[in-house]
Amino acid sequence: MEGAFRKIDIDVYDEDVLAEEELYQPNPRGPAEVLSETKQKATAVRSALAKGDVSGALGIVLQNPPYGPHVEEAKNTNMTTLVSILNSTKSSEIPNIVKSLTQDEQDTLMKCLYKGMAMPGWGDLSGSVLLGWHEKLTEVAGTGCIVRVMTDRRTV
C-alpha cells in the first residue's frame, strides 16, 4: 500500500515525545482529596435540591470539577450528582439558570453535557434532557463554549 507509511506510529522513534499530562496544568489536589471533596459536594447538592435551589446546586457541582489522572470514581460521582440536577430542573427555568452561571461554570457544564451524550444509557441519563440543556447553553455561551470542550484536556 502506498499510504501505509502514514499509519506508522512515529512517536515511538522520538525520545522527546510530548505526553498527554504535559498538555494541561496538573491538578493540585490528589485523587483521594478530590474524591472526598466530590462526595461532600454531592451531599451539599442534595440539601440544596431539597430546598429547591437548582442554580445553587449547579454552582456547587460545577466548582472545581475533578480532572486529571486516577480520579475516575470522583468523576462518576460528580456526573451522577450533575445528572440528578439536570433531570430535576423544569425546562422553563433552564435559560435563567444558564445565564446565572459564570463562564467557567458554563464551560464545565458543556463538558458534562458532551460527556453525557457520549455514554447513552448511563445511569438516569436522558438524551432529550441533555439536548434541552445544550440548546439553551449554546444560546447563551455560543459556539466558543463548545470549542473549549474540544480543546480542554482537563476532561470531566
Binding site: 498538555l23 494541561y24 496544568q25 464551560d107 470549542v147 473549549r148 480543546t151 480542554d152 484536556r153 482537563r154
Partner: peptide, 8 residues
C-alpha cells in the same frame, strides 16, 4: 504562558 482551557 497558557490559557487554562488549552488549545494551540
Amino acid at each position: 504562558y497558557t490559557s487554562a482551557s488549552g488549545g494551540w
